[in-house]
């Protein structure tokens, strides 16, 4: 009798699990088939609208602690590192002078050919109010949404260059997929040598430049910009610098690791470019980049 009861209870428990699993699969199917304005997508927007102020409050509360930990970690800088940083500083100062010259040249040339570069675009300044809630997404949340004219696919810039692309918009918030996210892909150009490739994020958070031919000359420190191909990102936005270059035997392409122009952990404000929204034909940065 007791055995029969146990079997009955076990059957009921398994039936319960099967029901929940079936419900989850139905949800996944509905979610993937419905449009961006479908009921599940709207519930997600509502959830994020509730979560955004909480995330913002968490950021405000944690700022002094993060500052303290950053200060503590800086205390551990050795004499060797300090000397290295001083050398780097000298080198960077020299480069700033050279870059200023180039910038003035560029300005004159831009005016001459009447081109529209990144500085000419209109944008909305947004404050970062949330970092990724889990390790599975490299996405940040900002305090500007559809009420401020933000739309899906708009590029976002940090203080030093491109930071990502808007992937979700609510009335008062927007989510930006960072360049370092593994789903991200940007048609890119190496400034010196003009070789084009695709900058992709990765699961480890590294930024990689793919599809650069093994015969190309690429060295650490080379500047990488958006190529403008595909129409998602305007041409000439700074992505980062080449950090490491390697090539495996018989490989067609070099393996190039980049340092992003912006340190995501310190970015507080972003500029979302509002007048370069791509057409719906070029949705999805990865797909777009892949066709370049």
């Amino acid at each position: 009798m007791k055995v029969a009861l146990n079997t009955e209870t076990n059957k009921r428990k398994i039936g319960w699990l099967i029901l929940l699993v079936a419900l989850s699969i139905i949800l996944m199917t509905v979610w993937s088939r419905e449009s961006d304005t479908g009921p599940i997508h709207r519930v997600r927007v509502a959830t994020e609208t509730v979560a955004a102020p909480i995330s913002s409050a968490g950021k405000w509360v944690s700022t002094p602690f993060r500052g303290f930990f950053s200060w503590m970690s800086d205390l551990g800088v050795s004499r060797g590192q300090l000397s290295e940083l001083r050398d780097q500083n000298k080198e960077l100062r020299a480069r700033v002078v050279a870059l200023e010259e180039t910038r003035l040249d560029n300005k004159r040339l831009s005016e001459l050919i009447n081109s529209t570069n990144a500085q000419g675009y209109k944008g909305v300044t947004a404050t970062v109010i949330g970092l990724p809630p889990s390790a599975w997404n490299q996405v940040i949340i900002t305090d500007k949404g559809s009420k401020d004219g933000i739309e899906i696919n708009m590029p976002a810039l940090g203080p030093y260059g491109l930071i990502g692309q808007v992937i979700e918009v609510g009335p008062t918030y927007s989510r930006i997929r960072l360049l370092t996210d593994q789903k991200s892909g940007v048609a890119s150009l190496i400034q010196r040598g003009r070789k084009t490739g695709i900058t992709k994020g990765s699961i480890s958070g590294d930024l990689m430049l793919d599809f650069i031919s093994a015969e190309s000359t690429v060295t650490a420190g080379d500047v990488v910009l958006t190529s403008g191909l595909g129409g998602v990102y305007p041409k000439g936005l700074l992505i980062g610098e080449v950090l490491e270059v390697s090539k495996e035997t018989n490989a067609l392409y070099k393996s190039i690791k980049l340092t992003p122009a912006n340190d995501i952990s310190t970015v507080e404000n972003v500029l979302i470019l509002t007048d370069t929204a791509p057409s719906t034909d070029s949705l999805g940065s990865s797909q777009d980049a892949g066709t370049d």
Partner: peptide, 22 residues
């Protein structure tokens, strides 16, 4: 709990619900 986590993230809605149920 999985459904809440799904709605907070950017992945497919229902995936965390499935995983956390199991």
């Amino acid at each position: 709990a999985g459904l809440i986590l799904d709605l907070m993230g950017t992945g497919p809605v229902g995936s965390w619900a499935l995983v956390l149920s199991v």
